[in-house]
C-alpha cells in the first residue's frame, strides 16, 4: 500500500515529467522554421524548397515533411523556445562554472537583485508593522489611513517604479537604493493590511479576559495581540517578499541597468538571447521559491515554539 506522502510526491513528479515532455514537444513546432532555414543554408535537403512556401505552411506540416530536423529543434542557438536541457546547461555554466565576480555570472546578477529585494523588504515590513500598530491603537489613524491602505491593494502601484528610478537618479541617488524603495513600498501595504487583521484577530472573550485582570494596553499588546497576529504576519510576509522581488526586477528595467536579473531579462529580449531570458527567469523563480520557502520555515519554527502549529 502506498502511503499518502509517497503518493503526493509521485503525483507531483508525474505532473513535472508531463510538463517537461510537453515542453520538448512544443519546441518542435516553435523552432522548426528557424531550424529549416539554418539546415538549408548548411546544404540539407528541405521540403518545400522555397523559403516563401515554407513561410505559408503550418508548423505541423513542416515537421511532418522534415522529420529529420526534429533533433535540431532542441539544439538551436537562438531558438524561439529553448529546450529544458539548454536552459539547464546555461544555468549550470553561468553559476557553477563562472566566477561570482564575472559580469556573466548569474549568481552575481541574482545577488544584485536579492540585495535590493532584502533591503526593501526589511524597510517595507518594518514600517508596515509600525503603521499597523498605530492603526490598531489610534482610532484617528484607523479611520483616515486604513481605507487608503486597502485601496492601495487594488492599484497597480508598480507603475510608479520607472519614475522612482529616474527621479532618484536625477537627485543623485542610484544603485541599490531606488530599487529598494520600490521593493519597500510594494511589501509595505500587504504587511499593513495583514498585520492590522492579525492584531485585531483576538475575539471579544479573550480581550474581556485581559480586562478582568485589569491589564494595561501595552500588556494587552505584548501578551495577546502580538502573539495572535503571528500567523497573519507570516502570510503577508510571504506575499510581501514575492512583491519585493518583482519590484526589484521591474526596478532594473527602465534605466538600462547593467546588473541584476531584470537587466538580464531586458538585455536578453533586446538581443534575442532566449536561452539567457529563460535562465534569468528560472533564476528569479528559484530565488522567489527560496525566499518564500525560507519564510515558511521560519513561520513553522516560530509558530511551533508558540504552540500555534504542530
Amino acid at each position: 500500500m502506498m502511503s499518502d506522502g509517497f503518493k503526493a510526491i509521485w503525483a507531483v513528479l508525474t505532473v513535472l515529467a508531463v510538463i517537461v515532455v510537453l515542453w520538448y514537444a512544443a519546441c518542435i513546432p516553435m523552432n522548426i522554421k528557424g531550424v529549416l532555414t539554418e539546415q538549408e543554408r548548411a546544404g540539407a535537403e528541405v521540403q518545400p524548397t522555397s523559403a516563401k512556401d515554407r513561410r505559408d505552411m503550418s508548423e505541423f506540416g513542416l515537421v511532418l515533411n522534415n522529420s529529420f530536423a526534429i533533433p535540431a529543434t532542441w539544439e538551436q542557438d537562438r531558438p524561439r523556445l529553448p529546450a529544458p536541457h539548454q536552459v539547464a546547461i546555461e544555468i549550470w555554466e553561468t553559476t557553477v562554472q563562472k566566477k561570482i565576480t564575472s559580469k556573466r555570472s548569474l549568481i552575481y546578477h541574482g545577488w544584485v537583485t536579492l540585495s535590493a529585494t532584502m533591503l526593501g523588504f526589511v524597510i517595507g515590513t518594518g514600517l508596515g508593522i509600525l503603521l499597523a500598530v498605530g492603526i490598531v491603537h489610534s482610532r484617528v489613524m484607523d479611520l483616515s489611513v486604513m481605507p487608503w491602505a486597502i485601496v492601495s491593494q487594488t492599484i497597480p502601484i508598480i507603475a510608479l517604479a520607472p519614475m522612482i528610478i529616474v527621479v532618484l537618479y536625477s537627485v543623485g541617488i542610484q544603485g541599490i537604493i531606488p530599487k529598494a524603495v520600490i521593493s519597500a513600498y510594494l511589501s509595505f501595504f500587504p504587511v499593513v493590511v495583514g498585520m492590522v487583521k492579525g492584531l485585531r484577530s483576538p475575539d471579544a472573550m479573550q480581550l474581556d479576559l485581559l480586562r478582568t485582570y485589569s491589564a494595561s494596553r501595552s500588556q494587552g499588546f505584548w501578551k495577546l495581540r502580538l502573539p495572535a497576529s503571528m500567523p497573519y504576519l507570516f502570510t503577508s510576509l510571504k506575499i510581501g517578499i514575492a512583491a519585493s522581488l518583482v519590484g526589484a526586477i521591474v526596478g532594473e528595467l527602465p534605466t538600462g541597468a547593467v546588473a541584476g536579473l531584470g537587466a538580464r531579462l531586458l538585455a536578453g529580449s533586446y538581443y534575442g538571447q532566449t536561452v539567457q531570458i529563460w535562465s534569468a527567469l528560472f533564476a528569479a523563480a528559484i530565488l522567489a521559491a527560496c525566499l518564500v520557502g525560507l519564510l515558511g520555515l521560519v513561520e513553522r519554527t516560530v509558530l511551533k515554539r508558540m504552540g500555534m502549529a504542530q
Binding site: K238, A242, L265, S269, T274, I277, A284, A285
Partner: peptide, 14 residues
C-alpha cells in the same frame, strides 16, 4: 508565488 511578470519578454517575442 513566482515573479511571473518575468515571462513578459518571452511572450512579447512570441
Amino acid at each position: 508565488a513566482l515573479p511571473i511578470v518575468g515571462t513578459a519578454p518571452i511572450l512579447v517575442m512570441w
